[in-house]
Structure formats: structure tokens, C-alpha cells
Write a protein that binds this DNA or RNA. Structure first.
Length: 291
DNA sequence: ACCGCACCCTGAGCGC
DNA sequence: TGCGCTCAGGGTGCGG
């Protein structure tokens, strides 16, 4: 679910509740795929520690603690990082939603999917990390220790250049879409913004990477920067699970040009948007505007 | 090295 | 109501 703009929005809006505060208590769910570092160890390591920074690297969030230790967070597909005061139907199951009084505005109660709860010292709400599918991750990073997940990442998608994309594409038979999704090429791009960038670049997602010209790479990357920046401005895309840390929806879902718009008219030429599987991901494009 | 695919996990929505 | 199927903003690890 969350790509660079959603992770960046999350970072900006959850930081005030974390940075400059001390963690009093950590409550977790039982060990699972979600915990790279076991929940017991996490609790032991984190309680009493001060949060000094919250950074984003690609789709990862990195919590900087006192003495140089760090905590790696990844939201996966359905991860939600939010304040305990947040209110949103996106935090509820369909059954809970159905039985909800439409005007009711009660705050979120931690459920079985709320894998991390940070109780902070002093004034202010708790911070919750909820993730239904458990594709998200949390990992303790000791001071001074490198991390291969982070080290693998390429240039952040906001800074990547057309030249870099073009160079990565040399000799590659895979679809250009697969290159955009490759986090070692540009960190932070996911399925929505790959499709949107390719639309703005005028290149079909299925085209072999090595057949994309340098000029087209520039256009794709310019489009990528444009959609990422605009999405951050509007608070990301809320399509199924994503909510900002205060419970509010993003706004970029209303500005999508192709993603999830199968059979709907292209805003530029009116032709029906097509959807097909490319690089094992559902991909959307305009057959007239993209070559 | 590169490439495609299975797999990790849970829930929503659909047709029957 | 229920069953079986497909789909979902991600990433890793395997064999060919």
C-alpha cells in the first residue's frame, strides 16, 4: 500500500508525537513474520529510550534513538502508523464499520493487528503500528551496524535522474515497469506511482527496459518527480488502507491519471485506460498516449 | 547476472 | 449464508 508519498506523509505527521520524547512502555502482539527482531527483545531494548529523529529512506522509516541505536520500520502493504487519538473507518474491519453509527467518532481501540504500541512519557498520545497482512517489518539496528536492507537501496526516487534510470536499463530485457519497481534502481517507487510516471513519460509499462531511450527516461523521471511531489502535497493516496497518522485520508487518489482506472477515459485523449499484468503487478496505461 | 515465479498473510468483494 | 475464487500501495528467496 504505502509508497514514498504515503511513507513521507506518515513520517512528517507522526514525528511530532515521537521525536524529542522518551518511550515509557512498548506493547506488542506475539512473535510473527512482522517482527524481524523478536517482540520481547524489542520491548527490552526500547523502553526508556529517547527518540531523537525520524527519517525516511525509500519506503523505510528509521527511528533514531539516543546513543546512535536505530529502529527500522516498513509499512508493507497494509501497515498503518498513527496516533492513538486518530479516528478513521480505515482502521476498522468491514463488520465493525457496518455496525458503526454514522456520526459516531470514538477513538481507535488497539486490536489483534496492532503489533506495536508506544506509550510515551509526558503529555501526548500513544503511537500505534497496525498491520493486517503483516508484510510490514520492525527491526532493531544497533549503533554503528550496517543494514543490508538499507544498503541495497538505490537513489531515493525524489532524487533519481533520467541518466541513472537509463544506465540501469542497459541490456535489461525486463519491462520498464519492473525497473521502476526495483528498489535498487530508485528507492520508494511502488505500483501506483510507477504507472503514473510511465503515463506522464508517454511510455507503456510493458516496453523492454533496454528499448527505452535516454529522452524517454528523462520524461519518465520528470513525471515521477512530479507525481511524487504532488502526492506528498496532498497527503498521499488513500485507496484502501492508508490513513495519515491523524486518521485523515490523503488526497492523491482523486488525481490519479491511470492507476485503478481500467476502462475509464484517459483525461488527455478520451481513450479507455487498459489494465494488464506486467512484472506480476497489475498495470494501467493509455494505449493512445503511451508507446 | 538475470528472470519469472512462489511465497509470506489477511480480508474484501464477487459470482454462484 | 456460505463457499471458492480473485484481488490488493511490498519484498525475499529460489531454481532455471
Amino acid at each position: 500500500m504505502p509508497e514514498l508519498p504515503e511513507v513521507e506523509t506518515t513520517r512528517r505527521r507522526i514525528a511530532p508525537f515521537l521525536v524529542g520524547r522518551r518511550i515509557r512502555r512498548v506493547i506488542t502482539t506475539p512473535p510473527s513474520y512482522f517482527f524481524i527482531t523478536a517482540p520481547d527483545e524489542l520491548r527490552k531494548r526500547l523502553e526508556g529510550r529517547s527518540v531523537e529523529a525520524l527519517d525516511r529512506v525509500g519506503k523505510y522509516l528509521v527511528m533514531g534513538l539516543d546513543r546512535g541505536d536505530r529502529v527500522l520500520l516498513h509499512l508493507g502493504m497494509t501497515g498503518q502508523l498513527f496516533s492513538s487519538e486518530a479516528t478513521s473507518v480505515r482502521l476498522l474491519s468491514a463488520t465493525a464499520r457496518a455496525s458503526l453509527d454514522p456520526d459516531e467518532q470514538r477513538s481507535f481501540e488497539p486490536d489483534a493487528h496492532t503489533h506495536l504500541r508506544f506509550e510515551m512519557e509526558g503529555e501526548g498520545p500513544e503511537v500505534y503500528f497496525r498491520d493486517v497482512r503483516k508484510f510490514g517489518k520492525v527491526q532493531w539496528l544497533p549503533a554503528g551496524e550496517a543494514n543490508e536492507r538499507l544498503d541495497r537501496l538505490g537513489t531515493d526516487a525524489l532524487e533519481v535522474t533520467g541518466e541513472e534510470l537509463f544506465r540501469a536499463n542497459r541490456g535489461r530485457r525486463v519491462a520498464i515497469k519492473a525497473m521502476l519497481l526495483d528498489q535498487t534502481v530508485a528507492a520508494g517507487v511502488g505500483n501506483i506511482y510507477a504507472d503514473e510516471a510511465l503515463f506522464l513519460g508517454g511510455v507503456r509499462p510493458g516496453r523492454a527496459a533496454k528499448r527505452v531511450t535516454r529522452t524517454e527516461c528523462d520524461a519518465i523521471v520528470a513525471g515521477l518527480h512530479k507525481v511524487l511531489r504532488r502526492s506528498i502535497e496532498t497527503g498521499g493516496s488513500s485507496i484502501s488502507d492508508y490513513v495519515a497518522p491523524d486518521g485523515s485520508d490523503g488526497g492523491y487518489q482523486d488525481e490519479r491519471r491511470v492507476y485503478g482506472r481500467k476502462n475509464e477515459p484517459c483525461h488527455t485523449c478520451g481513450e479507455a485506460i487498459k489494465r494488464r499484468l506486467i512484472a506480476q503487478r497489475s498495470s494501467h496505461y493509455c494505449p493512445h498516449c503511451q508507446r
